[in-house]
Design a protein around this nucleic acid. Structure first.
Lengths: 190, 190
DNA sequence: ACAACCATGTAAGTAGTTACATGATTTA
DNA sequence: TAAATCATGTAACTACTTACATGGTTGT
């Protein structure tokens, strides 16, 4: 149950309407979590029902902006959740499944996906490094809060660097021409 | 839809019953994917209904082992899936949400979870490095299949190293005594 | 024959995804 | 004033999780 708490955090940083939250999930918060607007609206309704947030504004109507603000109970709940021990969720890397499948059924087009991913990871890495240079220039003492924010960004940078490195290693292997396992000259396979 | 194809791959490598697959998911395959036995049994039923696998054995009865074997149609489907382009799924790192929350509501117990994770990542890293030394000793030319298997293991190694590095950085920050923010430069105005 | 365990399975609940609908607001 | 867009919302579906149940097998 992470989404409600991600929303509480975002609303503490800045009271917002659902549509604004959805946009922020595609930016900073979204570096490590993602949510569609449907999830967000549904969850905001639950947060309000639970008494963790209140919606101020323009009374009724469907197409009207509803700005939500965190209540003390919501802040307390967020602290409780953050304090609670949680086991790390197991990894889910579909790409590795496809590679394993390729090892079982022979060469496929996974290579192209890795090329695409390499480009994406390079872009993200450049973006994160840019953010780091802008928001956390070296040689300053900083508040604990800023240091924690920096840690999150560092995780993004290390993660993207790692995938860039790995993708390059992977392409070096996958681009090599397929040598039939050397059963004599080129013609004698199964 | 990854699980059915993960199962097909596992069954190509070795025809098995559900319980054996469940055990293997906690080992090699499970490095990058996880599934409970309920998921596995349900999915095996679907694979059989789709004509991708067949179950050989002991006729009827609930507590009987049912060994599944991949059919040609299943092999074809696996190749199709592996060839198909797939967008990378967005990251989901709950720990980063909790850190962000801690930046919003003040110091919490996340530190202890990171200490725990550091230990887990070190263990996994050691395990993977051991596997690499055993299965892929340096200085040998290898089949494409083996090289692809090695790539998967490399990803695991890079991933765990990355988290070990990051966790150490994080603990260095979080262990520092909490200085009240010194009411000074707000740091990161947007 | 009884206990402990193993393999398979059912059921209910939750989180996330995809497709679509409706009322307001802005723009041409 | 019609078209495009924005904000909110509904509905149906899929994957995953958690808890539990049933039948067989093994060991004493």
């Amino acid at each position: 149950m992470s989404l409600p708490h991600a929303l509480l955090t975002a609303l503490i940083e800045q009271s917002s309407a659902g549509s604004e939250l959805a946009r922020r999930f595609d930016r900073s918060i979204g570096f490590f979590w993602h949510a569609t607007h449907q999830q967000i609206y549904r969850e905001l309704g639950r947060l309000e029902a639970a008494g963790w947030v209140e919606s101020l504004p323009p009374a009724e109507g469907r197409g009207r902006k509803k700005v939500y603000r965190v209540l003390p109970a919501g802040r307390k709940e967020l602290k409780r959740w953050t304090d609670a021990h949680q086991d790390p969720k197991p990894l889910r890397e579909e790409l590795m499944l496809r590679l394993r499948a390729e090892a079982a059924v022979g060469p496929t087009a996974v290579k192209h996906d890795i090329e695409r991913r390499l480009a994406l990871h390079r872009d993200k890495l450049a973006l994160y490094q840019q953010l780091e240079a802008r928001d956390f220039p070296p040689g300053r003492t900083r508040s604990r809060e800023a240091q924690v924010q920096h840690l999150i960004l560092r995780a993004g940078i290390l993660m993207e660097s790692m995938w860039v490195d790995w993708s390059e290693q992977a392409l070096a292997v996958l681009r090599k021409p397929v040598r039939k396992p050397a059963r004599r000259p080129a013609g004698t396979g199964r």
